[in-house]
């Protein structure tokens, strides 16, 4: 097991390195007047020149790449471009925490819902319940997150007024439940996108398991249906669910740019978006790497969980 983890981590570092080079190439090798964009179109040329110099944008490329690597190894201690004097770490930290809260809350809602929904649909395959779950899931998962965000904001936040329509105006003295109310709407938007997706994955996995010979064996032993599901079906059926949930972490942490914009929520995706537009290169690179690292850790965790659930995967990777 330790070898598996070591191998995976090494591979991840290699992948991160590829990513780093790609981002560096994209932002620095291709010509774009970063200092001019930062200073604004009407700033005097000498200010632009000074800025170019200060930010080290005129240094040779290898030197710039070395600085980037240094930033990576010191976990973002360098300054950001757009807010001089503020380290990248100080900007990423709170955004990451905000994203984590949002993702955590939405997962607490959509994971149990979609697992139960998926298993129920698989058990009663082609029933009305199954068709309902599948169709609702397909529809809700189709809608882009910012669109369901806007729709929820309007219907629940504005028309019904049940929940705060934006997440930015949390009172300073807000308790746990009050702050929860402020992120519930964007979380619900995520739930809408993911419920259908995860439920369909679970359903597909569970259908295979319900049709498997060993499930027949379990029924033939005289087990009750609920025991068959608990002891024989779940463990095998949920492996794809775990794998897919792992791969979605990158998107949940870094891809909800639109949704965060709609609710004015200060998450990681929005921060990276602003960094890209500025352009704030150190912040952009740090943000991108953070998301990639989260993705890699999440997929690693998912694989470990699967190895725990499935002894075949365990021995296959050990060999």
């Amino acid at each position: 097991m330790a070898r598996l983890i070591a191998r995976r981590l090494l591979l991840s570092i290699f992948t991160l390195f590829i990513l780093l080079i790609a981002v560096f190439a994209l932002t620095r090798v291709f010509p774009s007047d970063i200092a001019r964009q930062l200073a604004g179109p009407f700033a005097p040329q000498e200010r632009v020149d000074r800025l170019n110099d200060e930010l080290g944008l005129l240094d040779p490329l290898p030197e710039q790449f070395w600085r980037l690597l240094k930033d990576v190894f010191t976990f973002g201690s360098g300054d950001s471009f757009s807010q001089p004097g503020v380290s990248v770490r100080e900007l990423i930290g709170p955004a990451l925490w905000n994203s984590a809260k949002l993702v955590g809350l939405s997962m607490l809602i959509f994971l149990p819902l979609s697992i139960v929904g998926g298993i129920l649909a698989a058990r009663r395959k082609d029933s009305r319940l199954d068709r309902g779950i599948v169709s609702f899931g397909l529809a809700s998962a189709s809608i882009p997150d910012f669109v369901s965000g806007v729709l929820l904001q309007f219907f629940i936040g504005v028309q019904l007024g049940w929940l705060p329509a934006t997440s930015s105006s949390v009172p300073d003295d807000a308790g746990f439940f009050t702050s929860l109310r402020f992120i519930l709407l964007p979380a619900l938007a995520i739930v809408l996108v993911y419920f259908g997706y995860i439920a369909r994955i679970t359903r597909a996995g569970a259908i295979g398991v319900f049709e498997a010979d060993y499930t027949r064996t379990a029924y033939m032993k005289g087990l009750k249906p609920i025991e068959v599901i608990r002891k024989h079906v779940l463990r095998n059926a949920l492996q794809p669910t775990v794998a897919v949930t792992g791969t979605q972490m990158g998107y949940l942490f870094g891809g909800l740019v639109g949704l965060e914009t709609v609710f004015n929520y200060p998450g990681l995706g929005g921060l990276i978006f602003k960094a890209a537009k500025a352009p704030d290169l150190p912040l952009l690179q740090a943000g991108v790497l953070t998301v990639a690292v989260i993705f890699m850790l999440a997929t690693l965790a998912a694989d470990l969980l699967i190895a725990w659930m499935n002894p075949r995967a365990r021995t296959a990777t050990e060999a």
Binding site: D213, Y214, T217, A218, M220, G222, L223, N236
Partner: peptide
């Protein structure tokens, strides 16, 4: 029926590899 299967009759299947739960 469950009680009958648990006590009276049992079955041996074609493919024993598939007939056993891989993760238990």
């Amino acid at each position: 029926l469950r009680k009958f299967r648990a006590t009276q009759a049992s079955m041996v299947y074609q493919d024993p590899v598939q007939a056993m739960n891989p993760s238990l």
